[in-house]
């Protein structure tokens, strides 16, 4: 059985989708990811979809679900690397991925996650940082 790997990177989970997902694979990813968030206490989930050439309403729903599930498990989700043709198609299809944070690439996605987590926590580290 194929599986989408979920990598741990500090307080974040990193998922790179390299294949076109069929339904079962996508549903498993959804379940695995929520499990991993719970198990590792991850603060953020970064989903890289730069290799995904098709997002239909089913896939869109899976991405939305992952974001909302992570949210209620206290983790932020950022989707990065969407191909321009996919973005055009999603909007014409009528699927604006409401409630899903996106960033152009992994680097900017990481920055966004860090910023969101710092914002949520207001950590003392940041508080006394006076550089």
């Amino acid at each position: 059985m194929e599986k989408i790997p979920i990598l741990r990177m500090g307080p974040f989970l990193l998922v790179t989708i390299q294949v076109d997902l069929y339904d079962r694979l996508a549903e498993n990813l959804e379940a695995d990811l929520v499990q991993m968030v719970s198990k590792t206490g991850a603060m953020g989930v970064l989903i890289d979809i730069s290799a995904v050439s098709i997002i239909d309403s089913f896939m869109g729903r899976i991405i939305g679900n992952i974001a909302s599930m992570s949210k209620i498990m206290d983790a932020e989700t950022v989707v990065v690397g969407m191909q321009p043709a996919v973005a055009i198609t999603l909007i014409e299809l009528g699927l604006p991925l409401k409630g899903v944070q996106c960033a152009l690439n992994v680097e900017r996605g990481m920055d966004l996650l860090r910023a969101k987590i710092a914002l949520n926590e207001g950590t003392p580290d940041d508080y006394f940082d006076t550089e």
């Binding site: 098709i54 997002i55 089913f58 191909q83 043709a85 996919v86 198609t89 299809l93």
Partner: peptide, 17 residues
């Protein structure tokens, strides 16, 4: 072209589902 291809394949995916 890539954009039209993506639209067609997405449409095909919706219909086949």
């Amino acid at each position: 072209g890539l954009v039209n291809q993506t639209k067609l394949i997405t449409a095909a995916s919706e219909l086949v589902r």
